[in-house]
């Protein structure tokens, strides 16, 4: 049986093949600039139209596709596999051409380091080098879990074939149940990556502000650790705001202790949102704390952020609508 299908992009000479893969995955693996963001059905950035041919939808109710967009014949490339050769309509863009083409690799769990009561850093090893950009994510295919889970890497790509992920234990989450309670050192999973556009831009001339909340810590740690080591960024100020609910949810001290260079070069400002007796540090939502602590002139920074949707929404509104920070200076991947 022929499992490989050809996909032509209408009105262009572009063509790619898909074999046991999503349209998006196959396009990126072949180096095409197919627009996307979450690769998880949530954001709607990878919408395309089927001109001819059939596709199979992996998740027909994916929230990234509104009823109206569906009625207009749009589909999500991250949730579609071809069922025949197809002609599709999509606008490829050069900024989505992957610098490191995503690949599917087998990874072995080598360590799970507990950071707080519900945050653990899982360390996987692959025989191949871990080629990714600081801030990017990967899809984890876990044993006996339907579908993939997207998690951002917390380490540096220079660490050989190491892929670390700081992950929050979600009560009742089937993916994290496997990670936190079943997976043992030596067990294998599949990693598909890297993906994502919210990576460090060392060529930017501006000071750097990273904002993380909850398990949005993971890619921010990678970005800060890479930024403090990049010779091009030697003169930049690097500020890292991290928001958690209570002091119990913070692990910034430990992360700084593990990376003295980060402690020396970056200003790390943890804040808690729930008033707690005995807490001497910043209190409030992290975007409010950032607004209070940053010197004026928000347009003079390059912003990176990752966290739960209410947090990233609040940051977007503050920076893009209120402070008129140019949109291209705010980097984040929408996972909803």
């Amino acid at each position: 049986m022929n499992n490989s299908f050809s996909i032509k992009i209408d009105g262009t000479g572009e063509e790619f093949s898909v074999a046991n893969d999503t349209l998006l995955g196959a396009a990126l693996r072949q180096g095409l600039g197919f627009p996307y963001e979450c690769n998880s059905g949530g954001c709607g950035s990878c919408m395309f139209e089927v001109v001819s041919g059939d596709v199979k939808e992996l998740w027909p109710d994916a929230p990234g596709l509104s009823a109206r967009a569906r009625e207009r014949g749009r589909r999500l490339a991250c949730q579609c596999e071809p069922a025949s050769d197809c002609v599709i309509k999509v606008r490829l863009k050069s900024d989505y051409v992957p610098l490191h083409r995503p690949a599917r690799v087998t990874a072995t769990l080598v360590e799970a380091r507990k950071l707080t009561h519900d945050l653990t850093e899982f360390c996987f090893q692959t025989p191949e080098p871990a080629d990714f950009l600081p801030g990017q994510f990967a899809l984890l295919h876990l044993p006996s879990v339907e579908g993939a889970r997207a998690y951002s890497m917390s380490n540096l790509p220079a660490d050989g074939g190491t892929w670390n992920f700081i992950i929050r234990h979600v009560p009742k989450g089937r993916g994290t149940a496997v990670l936190f309670t079943q997976l043992k050192t030596g067990d294998q999973i599949k990693i598909d990556g890297p993906y994502g556009l919210a990576y460090l831009r060392p060529e930017s001339p501006r000071d750097i502000v990273c904002i993380g909340g909850g398990s949005g810590l993971s890619p921010m740690v990678s970005i800060v650790r890479a930024a403090v080591r990049d010779p091009r960024l030697i003169d930049r100020k690097i500020t890292f705001f991290y928001g958690a609910r209570t002091p119990n949810d913070l692990c910034t001290e430990e992360l700084l202790a593990r990376d003295p260079l980060m402690a020396e070069r970056a200003t790390v400002i943890p804040a808690i949102s729930t008033p707690t007796e005995g807490w001497q540090g910043e209190q409030g939502f992290i975007h409010e704390v950032m607004q209070k602590k940053l010197a004026a002139g928000f347009e003079n920074y390059e912003f990176y952020c990752c966290g739960p949707p209410p947090m990233t929404d609040a940051i977007q509104r503050l920076l893009l609508l209120d402070k008129r920070v140019p949109a291209q200076q705010l980097h984040f991947d929408r996972f909803y």
């Binding site: 627009p35 709607g44 950035s45 919408m47 509104s66 109206r68 967009a69 207009r72 606008r91």
Partner: peptide, 8 residues
């Protein structure tokens, strides 16, 4: 930017 329907 990304072909998202503006009415949304």
């Amino acid at each position: 930017h990304q072909d998202i329907l503006l009415v949304e």
